[in-house]
Design a protein around this nucleic acid. Structure first.
Lengths: 143, 143
DNA sequence: GTAGACCTTCCAGTACGCTGGAAGGTCAAG
DNA sequence: CTTGACCTTCCAGCGTACTGGAAGGTCTAC
């Protein structure tokens, strides 16, 4: 099976397949007389595995590490379980970050809705994002 | 105020400040006789604005677009409000993606917990990530 | 005059997963 | 023989926000 055919069956591009080989995810296949890559059927399986792993959020480097273990003849279960836990933790972290940013943005959205552009001074850049220290009324602090 | 001093007051590095200038976020300051940058006090304000905007998740390109509007003498409110809405939508999108990936990973985690490595065949890469089509019992489908 | 802190410019690299393009070889059909 | 589809290699670039380092200039203190 040549590169283009494997690309068609796997839903990737020929470029990507060559890139995976160069990145150590796909072993070098034998070549035809003309120098064309000639993949065995298992290559499609391997690519399917890579896509599955990617959809689980694993990086190519991590996927490669799993494949290296597997290619050495060992079962990568323990390693895979570790990667899964790592990624779950990572996702929680990133979701927390996004929630924080969302809170910031919602504050800004409210401020935007309440802002009258004509009251902005030239010295400010944008009071929606970076409001002046105290613009309320001067009575809010006793003294 | 020289670059290092501005860096110290703003909490950035001198490198970053020069990078911002090159990226069009900070106007070119006047130079001393020796060729050193000599920032006016407003520069610190501008950097504070940039940091605020960054913490709201705006990219440097977006922040620059706001600054360009502001530097042209107009108020960037409408533009800023638009960016805020865009980013809120973007965050929702990304959180949805993360939730999807998390679901995938949780499935994998369960599978990992239920997997006995010794039952894996050599033909599989990792049945946690990419399980064989039907490994249950052969009775699950009638016929 | 010399050490050392600070500044300058310019170029390159980081991570990530590809993608584009140039220049050329292979193979089957007409 | 030529066309055209397909393949090969190699090099470069994308986007993001910096960061590192080299090679050299400036300024102050001793």
């Amino acid at each position: 099976m040549r590169t283009g055919e494997l690309a068609a069956t796997s839903g990737l591009t020929a470029k990507t397949i060559r890139f995976y080989e160069q990145a150590g995810l796909l072993p070098e296949p034998p070549r035809t007389q003309g120098g064309y890559r000639d993949y065995p059927p298992e290559a499609a399986h391997r690519l399917a595995f890579i896509r599955e792993a990617q959809s689980a959020g694993l990086t190519l480097a991590e996927i490669r590490s799993v494949l290296v273990v597997r290619d050495s003849g060992e079962t990568p279960c323990v390693h895979v379980a570790y990667l899964i836990e790592q990624h779950l933790a990572d996702i929680e972290r990133r979701m927390a970050e996004l929630r924080t940013t969302r809170t910031v943005l919602r504050t800004l959205a409210q401020r935007a809705a309440a802002t009258d552009p004509s009251t902005c001074s030239e010295a400010e850049i944008c009071r929606i994002i970076n409001p002046p220290p105290q613009v309320t009324d001067g009575l809010s602090r006793p003294g």
